[in-house]
Nucleic acid binder design. Structure first.
Length: 394
RNA sequence: UCCGCAGUAGCUCAAUGGCAGAGCACUCGGCUGUUAACCGAGGGGUUGUAGGUUCGAGUCCUACCUGCGGAG
């Protein structure tokens, strides 16, 4: 009985550097380029799983976060409830971030050493230690389908010297992540395998992460060192952390085309609708971002003609939908006036409806991106999509 | 009718006789591997009215107006 590879990636169409592909995980096929909604604490905030599965959204894969789930409810709870999929009631693919991003985002609460990172828990103030080994162990126990290596995300404005030190630490942590991950797989710690039911036999996949800040030479070195270790897919991390947009596209434009052609390329934490299309144009296959969910909760809608700030008084009597050309349930049923009323009243339905629309817009945009690549019209799509975004149809 | 208490931003309230503020509300902005139903900025005033004391009054004095409580 041979074990199938944890993940396979097949490119089915190209248009310039853009590619349409099929990413096959043990929990189903994911058409790429794909946007992955972020579900940090075991929930895509303000969204029901039924909605994520509905044809309208049809999210094939969502994120979970190692650091946050490890702190609360704690890995013992999730393990005893059968792993993350069973715990949250989601049977499609899950990707877990390693906690590496929290090394950066919780800067004031942590201390980095060669061994790992010491965090002061924001939940109860306790001291917690996260390392490549701990992160791999937690992610195995969560049973996610794609595991991310434990990396260090350096500040956007880091000098070359600091970026190098950070990139080299990430490389050593990548090696340790790989080793620990392999051990855990052979020990069968992965709770997502479900051998008993026979429904799933595949193993978890492990992705490596390219770092190096804004320095292209460091990025290239990081890529070659990461590839040398060998992973099931590769991510570009450490972008969209405050740097100029031109810096991000310089890095992506330089790194993405040099990444292995037969494996998935994941641009972590990006981005706006325009960023997604621009990333695809440079050869990226996978994206995740909190923008559709977070901004939905804070009163901002993404539409085909740009951003709509639902809070603005000018919508108070506006009976139009958020986006005339959006077919989502929120746009079919509700006016800007009503959504503004809900937001201004502090009603939780405002978060639910705006998040739904934003996710629908992001996921539909990616559907159209995939189709345009398959039909060879991606460049035309990119131009028209971008022009319309800045046209402001208010 | 008398006694007491209170009148300050749209609302609830601050301000030893020394530059009239806060929270909420409102208006606008931000948010990119979520410490975020969050964060930031802005506009808002004849301090109930009329006098007086004082170098200087939201603050002290007098009268009046309004509200609340008590007595009769």
């Amino acid at each position: 009985m041979s074990t199938p590879p944890p993940i396979t990636f097949t490119v089915v169409a190209r248009d310039g550097n853009a590619r349409a592909g099929l990413l096959t995980t043990r929990r189903g096929v994911i058409e790429t380029p794909v946007f992955m909604p972020v579900g940090t604490a075991g929930t895509v905030k303000a969204t029901r799983f039924e909605a994520l599965e509905s044809p309208e959204l049809d999210a094939r894969i969502i994120l979970g976060n190692t650091y946050h789930l490890w702190l609360r409810p704690g890995i013992e709870t999730i393990k005893s409830c059968g792993g993350l999929h069973r715990f949250i009631g989601w049977d499609r693919a899950l990707l877990t971030d390693s906690g590496g991003f929290q090394v950066w985002s919780l800067g004031a609460l942590r201390k980095i050493t060669e061994e790992g990172t010491e965090f002061r828990s924001h939940v109860d103030g306790s001291l917690r230690f996260l390392s490549p080994e701990v992160s791999m162990e937690v992610q195995a126990e969560l049973g996610s389908d794609i595991v991310m290596a434990f990396d260090e995300c350096a500040p956007a404005d880091a000098l070359a010297e600091d970026s190098r030190r950070s990139m080299e630490l990430t490389a050593r942590w990548a090696q340790r992540s790989r080793a620990k991950f392999d051990t855990l797989q052979s020990e069968g710690v992965d709770t997502g395998r479900r051998d008993d039911a026979g429904a799933l036999s595949g193993a978890q996949a492990l992705f490596g992460i390219v770092q190096g800040g804004a320095h292209l030479d460091l990025r290239k070195e990081s890529l070659s060192r990461t590839v040398q270790i060998g992973f099931d897919g590769y991510a570009i991390g450490g972008l969209s952390v405050g740097e100029e947009k031109s810096v991000m596209w310089d890095v992506v434009g330089e790194v993405a085309p040099e990444m292995l052609a037969n494996q998935a390329r994941y641009l972590m934490g990006v981005g706006t609708p325009e960023d997604l299309v621009e990333g695809v144009a440079r050869g990226i296959d996978m994206f995740d971002c909190v923008l559709p969910t977070r901004n939905g909760r804070t009163g901002q809608a993404f539409t085909s003609h740009g951003k709509v700030n639902v809070k603005n008084a000018q919508w108070a009597l506006d009976t139009r939908p958020l986006d005339e050309s959006c077919g989502c349930g929120v746009c079919r049923r509700h006016s800007r006036a009503y959504l503004r009323h809900l937001y201004m009243s502090g009603e939780m339905l405002a978060s639910v409806l705006l998040t739904h629309h934003n996710l629908a817009f992001f996921l539909d945009t990616m559907r159209r991106v995939r189709q345009s690549i398959r039909s060879g019209d991606f460049m035309k799509f990119r131009r028209e999509f971008t022009e319309r975004l800045s046209a402001s149809g208010d």
